[in-house]
């Protein structure tokens, strides 16, 4: 149990994808102009990442390792994620109109969100031959929640910057990057929290 707690705190705060590991920067910078859309993106990523952790775990443990095909990991995982995203999109469309409308537009973008592939690979390379099933799913979900926290807080900051007297030349990416840099300083206090 405490092990799982460590994974959660680690994923949300200490090894925050965006702030410490530079994963998922594209959506972080691209979909963070409004808090509502940022939240939508965060939820969609959380959803996909939890499922992706589950599936990639089974593929790694019961397919790649027994067949000694570990070097095929990248290809296998990215395909799983691509297929998964497509399936989730179709299923959501059929099952829940509301959820689809909330998350649908973000789903295609997630295939190229490196955080999803990153967490899947991290699950297999974590201590002692990789996380077990529960640890993998918890790690994926916690990491995605950390991503959500970062992107929503960042979006709120950018909404504020948009109506501030920030100089024109800071508009767009330069300002966003420098703001993200300052934000990541606040997350540095957690580094070393868990060893």
């Amino acid at each position: 149990m405490s092990n799982l707690m460590l994974i959660v705190v680690g994923g949300v705060l200490v090894n925050n994808f965006v702030m410490s590991q530079f994963l998922g920067i594209c959506p972080f910078l691209g979909v963070s102009k409004k808090t509502e859309t940022a939240l939508g993106m965060g939820m969609a990523v959380t959803f996909v990442m939890a499922i992706a952790s589950l599936f990639t775990f089974f593929v790694q443990r019961y397919l790649l390792i027994p067949l000694q095909l570990e070097y095929m990991q990248t290809i296998a995982f990215i395909l799983i994620i691509a297929v998964l995203v497509q399936t989730v999109e179709i299923v959501l469309k059929k099952m829940s109109r509301a959820l689809y409308q909330a998350l649908g537009v973000y789903l295609p973008l997630i295939t190229t969100n490196c955080a999803v592939l990153g967490v899947a690979i991290n699950n297999t390379t974590a201590v002692d031959g990789g996380y077990n099933l529960i640890q993998s799913v918890v790690n994926g979900t916690a990491g995605a929640l950390g991503f959500t926290l970062a992107i929503v807080a960042f979006a709120a900051i950018r909404e504020r910057l948009a109506v501030s007297e920030m100089p024109k030349w800071m508009d767009g990416f330069p300002g966003a990057l420098i703001a993200a840099g300052l934000m990541s300083i606040a997350f540095q206090g957690f580094s070393g929290l868990i060893h």
């Binding site: 410490s20 530079f22 990057l177 840099g181 300052l182």
Partner: peptide, 18 residues
Amino acid sequence: RPPGGFVMLGLLLLVVNA
């Protein structure tokens, strides 16, 4: 460290834009 990555790329972009 990570904050430096963001900030330095931001500053470099400012220079390039200028």
